[in-house]
Every structure is written in C-alpha cells, then in structure tokens.
Design a protein around this nucleic acid. Sequence first.
DNA 1: TCGCCTACTTGAACATGTTCAAAAGTCGGT
DNA 2: ACCGACTTTTGAACATGTTCAAGTAGGCGA
Lengths: 230, 230
Amino acid sequence: MGVTTLTDVTESATTKGEQTRELILSTALRLFREQGYGKTTMRAIATEAGVSVGNAYYYYGSKEHLMQAYYDHLQVQHVEAVESVLATEKAFVPRLTGVLRAWLEVSAPYHEFAGTFFKTAAEPKSPLSPFSDQSRPAREASVELFRRVVEGSDLKLPADLKAELPELLWLMQMGIVLFWVHDDSKDLRRTKALIDRSVPLVDRLLRLTRIPGVRGVTNDLVGLIRSIKS
Amino acid sequence: MGVTTLTDVTESATTKGEQTRELILSTALRLFREQGYGKTTMRAIATEAGVSVGNAYYYYGSKEHLMQAYYDHLQVQHVEAVESVLATEKAFVPRLTGVLRAWLEVSAPYHEFAGTFFKTAAEPKSPLSPFSDQSRPAREASVELFRRVVEGSDLKLPADLKAELPELLWLMQMGIVLFWVHDDSKDLRRTKALIDRSVPLVDRLLRLTRIPGVRGVTNDLVGLIRSIKS
DNA sequence: TCGCCTACTTGAACATGTTCAAAAGTCGGT
DNA sequence: ACCGACTTTTGAACATGTTCAAGTAGGCGA
C-alpha cells in the first residue's frame, strides 16, 4: 500500500484496481500542473477522475503521496533526457552541465508549484525528504546518474575522492534545486547562470587536488564525508 | 500588523493590545515546546491563553507567523549566548566552533519540532524562508554575527574573500541546520561531530587561498557569489 | 454626558485534508 | 446458482487552519 515505484505513469494497467490507481494519479498530476498543488483539492481530483474522495485515499495514503509519485515521474524523465548527453559528451564540464541543464528543462513546467513540493520535502519525517528511506530508490538512481557522469568523463582523480564524487555532485544538485526553487528571474536566467559558472569552478577545484598542499585537505574532506555517512 | 521584531518575548508590554499579543505568543511557544508544532491547534492556543481564536489571528496572520516569532526568539538567545565566546576566543577555529555549538545548545529543546519549522521555512513564498524579505532582519543579524567571528579572529585573507566570508559561513550554518534537523543520533552526536570536523576543514581551506595556484579558483568563486547576489 | 471613532474581541461559518464503517463488486469453489 | 472471502468504492463525519460580519470597550471632542 502506497509503495510507489519508479515506473512511467503512462504504463498500461492490468487489473481494475491498477487502472483506478493510475487514473487517479494522472488526474492529480494534470491538476497539479494546471492549477498548482495548493489549489488542487483532493475533492477536485476525485471528482475529475470520477471516483470518490475515499477511493483516492485507498490508493494514495495522502496528498503528499501523490506528489511523491510526481517526483518519481520527473526522475524517470530526467534519466531519459540525459542519455544523449552521456552518449555524446566526454569532457567533464559539458557532461555535468548537460545533465544539470536537462534537469532544469524537464522540471521547468513544474517550477511554479515546485515550492510546495520542496516545502514538504524538507520535513525529515516526510517520505518525500530526499534523505528518507522511501525516496532511497529515486536518490540512488540520481546518484547513479552522476556516477556515470564521472565514470565516462576525462577526469583524473584520486580513487577515494572519485568514489565520493557522485554523492557530492548529487548534493550540489540539491543546492541548485534549492536555488531554482527560489529563482523567479525571467526564463530562470539566474539558475542557468549558476549552473554554467559553478560547473567549471567545480572542475577547476577537482583538478586542484593534484597539488600536494591541497591533497591533505582533500583527504580530510573524504574522511569527513565517510564518517558522516556511517 | 504581523511585522515581528527581534525583541525578547519577555519584554513587558505597554498597551492592552500589546499585552494580548504577547500573551498569545508566549502561550503558543509554550504549547509548541510541550506538544510540538503539529499537535498544537490554534484553538488550543486560544483557549489556553483565554482568548478567542479570531483574536489570535488579529495579532498573528497565521500559525506560521507564530513560528516566525519563535524563530526570532531563538535568534536573540543565540546572540546572547555567543557573546562570551566572541569575547574570549581569538583563534578562528574555536571561535567559529563556539558560535555553531552555541546555536546547537540554544536550539536543542526545540529539536523535535524543528522539522516542522523547516518544512514551512523551505517554501520560497513563506515569510519564514531564510531567504525571504520578512526574515531579512534575522538573516542580517545572523550574518553580522559571522562577520564578528571573522573580524575578531586571526584569519589573514584576501580582502574580497574576507568580505564574502560571513555570508558563506551563514550558508554553512544553514547546511548544518539542515543536517541537524535530520539528525536523530543520541545527544546530537553526529551534528556535533560534523561541526567539530568541518570547522578545521574550512580553516585549512581558507588558508590554502594563499597558494598561487589556488588563488584563481578563489577569485572565480568570489566572482560567482557576487554575480549571484546581484 | 453624549456621540463617535478606533482598537479590540468574539464565535460561528467555511475550506480542505483525512478517516472509517458500511456498501458494492469480484471471483473461486462447490 | 450460491456462498464466503477478499478487494474496491462510497460518502458522511471529523479535525483544524482561516475568514469575517458583528459586537464590545475605551477614550476623545463637543
């Protein structure tokens, strides 16, 4: 009950129940897009889908669960959108930039109601929290994406740093998302600028780790990260 | 109406209205502490304070505004708690560590319901957002605190970096707070470890900026920050 | 004292997320 | 066809944040 999986919404259903479940979800996502999360009531979703309110709750434990499903949906779209970049670009900077920009494009239609999304995502106990158990699959899929960004690139790094880098890049993306949520500039100009300027900076930073004097700090950093994760 | 100031809750009121305002606030804060934010209803606050529900809304536009007031309260306590550290410690590492640990101590009683607080704080449009206009006074007071940490310390830094550093430290604190919110280890062991290990790391990083090869990256970073802020 | 204006207070009404006991449907076994 | 168990569906009821039209109080000028 309520265990959402990383599957496409458009997937065809088998049993009657699954059909209802997807009908409710797709209706909810449409209304979220059309009028925002806050203004979409559970009653509206139920009415629009032609079911009762209680029925929606039978399949989704809460309104937030519907948003969780939306988030998974986004994730899948992002992975799909990113394939061409990963296949084409080999240099680290355009590779990472491409992945981050792809996320921006996929998420753009939802920018307006993304604030509400992150509002609930920020709560530790919420299943929507990017650090929660429930979103582990989505998180791991995302980290895996950044692992591919690192692996397939021309970066030469000490092994220990290289191992932690995907998670650090994931964290960087969280930061960018946070910025994006607050960004109300025209065409998300500011977020795009942030990406385009911070990626080369990260690139330079990473290459600095070869300087002997920097190496000690890098080791400390890796040590800190590891101790935090355990 | 609703413009909360950075004053202590215990401040004595003059007019009848101000007395009511503070009665409502102190009652709310007490109930928040006793049973958590989520379980404290506006009706309970009103009843406990001996006023009507509508009266609470006359002074505080929403339940969130009451939390905003709580946040300001915390801020004041933190500044007070930090004075002795700033007066005593002169080296950068214990100075910053002391300030961050003081925050931890002041906030500890509220750790349990802090999650809910940050939930609403994460929403861009919320007045509680650390980036919002409404919390500008609190934010600036906090940045000012870190400016004093930097100014009074033995750090030798390039002027441009030194100018941006207080805001960067504020951002670092936001990160620590985020970690803290999710930290359910005994006695906040993990958050304490994070502080104790990351502060020396920051210290080493800052001192690295004297190395010529690192200087270029530092300049880039400062440039990025400045362009973002405008 | 009277009238009136502003500040304050009230509580019923409303909007919406959520629950739950009961009804309706489905399906395999006999 | 009927029974029984399980799944699905219903909608009224509930909890709680919020609004608002109406009432009350205090004070000030005439």
